[in-house]
Computed example of a mutant assay.
Amino acid sequence: MERQDVTTIVLFEVPAQHASRFLSDWTASNDFMKQQSGLIDGTLYATADDNARYRFINVARWASETDLAEARKRHWEHLEAPSVNQREAWKTLGITVTPVNYAMVIIYSGTERAIEEEPR
């Protein structure tokens, strides 16, 4: 039985001088991925820490691992097209991509109001 609702976390190592180029390329890639079947939602995060290993992290939820696998396959084929060739360009710029899939284990939330401590 296939697990449903898979979360993929993609870590991007991006040299600071190529952050703008990365965002431009990522936006184009995201436009492609948003057209794929099974995408629920996602968020791209950026760090303000210039010393962080991963400058950008993308977190996306997909309806199933099958949907994600098919979308990634089509995406990589698209990126390797001679008119795009993003994979080779990113390699030249020192941009690396590390995708990892996760299944939900625990859902948690914070309190909405502060709890005042009793005076001692």
Rank of each mutant, 00 (worst) to 15 (best):
R113S: 12
A69T: 07
Q35H: 07
H18C: 05
T47G: 08
A71G: 00
A69V: 04
T111Q: 15
S109D: 15
D50L: 15
R74N: 12
T7N: 00
E118W: 10
H75E: 11
A48R: 15
K73T: 09
I106T: 09
Q17R: 08
A103H: 12
H78P: 00
A69N: 10
F22E: 04
L79F: 03
A63W: 04
P119Q: 14
L93P: 01
K34C: 08
E88I: 05
D5C: 05
L11Y: 01
R120T: 07
V105T: 08
T8I: 08
Y54E: 14
V84T: 04
D31Q: 13
N85A: 08
W26P: 00
N58H: 13
E80M: 13
P99Q: 12
T8W: 03
A71Q: 00
A114R: 15
W62H: 02
L68C: 00
R55C: 09
A71Y: 00
Q4E: 11
T7G: 01
V97K: 06
P15Y: 03
M1P: 01
S29C: 13
Q86G: 03
N30S: 13
T27V: 06
R113F: 11
R55N: 10
P15W: 02
A19T: 03
V59R: 09
A69W: 03
D41R: 14
E112Q: 11
W76K: 13
E2D: 04
W26S: 02
A48F: 15
A114W: 10
R74C: 07
W26G: 02
I106L: 13
N101F: 04
M1V: 02
H18V: 06
T98V: 11
I107Y: 12
N85Q: 09
S24E: 12
I95C: 01
Q35T: 12
E13P: 01
L79M: 10
T92I: 09
F12E: 00
H18A: 08
N51P: 09
E65G: 08
L68S: 00
Y108K: 15
P82Q: 07
Q17K: 08
T43H: 14
D49N: 15
Y45T: 09
W62G: 01
W90N: 00
Q17G: 00
R21M: 06
P119L: 14
R120W: 07
G38H: 03
G38M: 05
E116D: 13
W76P: 02
Q86Y: 11
A48H: 14
P99D: 08
